[in-house]
């Protein structure tokens, strides 16, 4: 197809560019500024080159929080994506059940992050919280403020509760867009339920699932508020994910240079993983 070439159209991008510059690019540049220099306040800066980057890359503390971060993200993706698809498959396809389910599913998504953290904190308190008290009454030795395993369990459960709905809604939309003829053809071809799922539903959901995985990867990789309110990164540093560790370094210890370098490394990891993932998922698409 012949598309009209009109370079003047770029002028229409200027307002967006200015807005993005103010809320993203300029703040990011100040971070870049801090990442290569040392400051003692009063706007006095000294050039440090790549020193902070080397320091962060070699720091065991960074390795540990990065490891925790990847572990957390993989666990929640591993739970939320299959669970979300499974729930979407069992949701009603017509009738009054559809809006009821959709509204119920959207509820967790509408609750502010810090409220979710606070809710779960109280819910999981071992002495008075419903979850914590029940678990202890059932004979489990549960205390998320002191035991590492319990802290992880509670954080993951909270994230699953908060975000699985997003995967459900996206999968449901993907499932609803499949033409009935596909199911009819599969029925006539004698396909089993499993074959319908793997040969029709999953391939047709590929695009929405790619979006769901990307969104859940990014959000969980940058998670801050909920675990901060729930566990504060503890016990010890057990649930100190990258963001929590970063804030500790920047605002707790006031190590602005290393913190800025860490932010940039953090940013590039997110960017790189998203790019690699997206490219891999879309590669076959372009071939055909």
């Amino acid at each position: 197809m012949n598309k009209t070439v009109n370079q003047k159209a770029w002028f229409f991008v200027i307002p967006v560019f200015v807005l993005v510059a103010f809320n993203a690019i300029i703040p990011l540049m100040t971070v870049v500024n801090y990442a290569f220099q040392e400051t003692f306040g009063n706007n006095v800066f000294m050039w440090e080159g790549t020193r902070w980057f080397k320091q962060i890359m070699l720091s065991e503390r960074f390795h540990a929080s990065l490891g925790r971060q990847f572990l957390f993200t993989f666990i929640i993706l591993f739970i939320q994506i299959p669970l979300g698809i499974a729930i979407a498959l069992t949701m009603p396809k017509e009738g009054i059940g559809v809006p009821v389910c959709l509204v119920l599913m959207s509820m967790p998504l509408l609750i502010p992050w810090n409220v979710v953290g606070a809710m779960w904190n109280i819910f999981a308190l071992p002495d008075i919280g419903f979850l914590g008290h029940s678990l202890n009454a059932l004979g489990f030795d549960y205390n998320f403020t002191q035991q590492i395993g319990d802290a992880w369990f509670t954080t993951i459960l909270m994230d699953v509760w908060h975000w699985t709905s997003l995967v459900v809604l996206l999968s449901y939309a993907g499932l609803r867009s499949i033409q009935p003829a596909y199911y009819q053809a599969a029925e006539i071809d004698g396909a089993s339920r499993w074959a319908i799922f793997t040969k029709i539903e999953l391939p047709k959901m590929k695009k929405v699932l790619t979006i769901a995985i990307l969104l859940r990867f990014m959000d969980s990789f940058m998670i801050y508020t909920e675990p901060f309110v729930l566990t504060g990164g503890g016990p010890g540093n057990a649930t100190a994910f990258l963001s929590i560790d970063l804030v500790k370094m920047a605002l707790g210890q006031f190590d602005l240079g290393p913190a800025a370098a860490m932010s940039l490394i953090y940013f590039f990891i997110v960017l790189l993983v998203c790019w690699v993932f997206y490219t891999l998922m879309m590669r076959n698409e372009e071939k055909s």
């Binding site: 033409q179 003829a181 596909y182 009819q184 053809a185 029925e187 006539i188 071809d189 004698g190 396909a191 040969k199 029709i200 391939p203 047709k204």
Partner: peptide, 28 residues
């Protein structure tokens, strides 16, 4: 439909995207 043992071709092509042409034909 399986018990009736019939075949049906629909208005728009229904194919199994991830399979090869051979596997599509072999599927039933």
């Amino acid at each position: 439909p399986v018990e009736r043992n019939i075949a049906q071709i629909f208005q728009f092509p229904v194919i199994y995207d991830t399979m090869t042409v051979y596997d599509n034909l072999a599927f039933p």
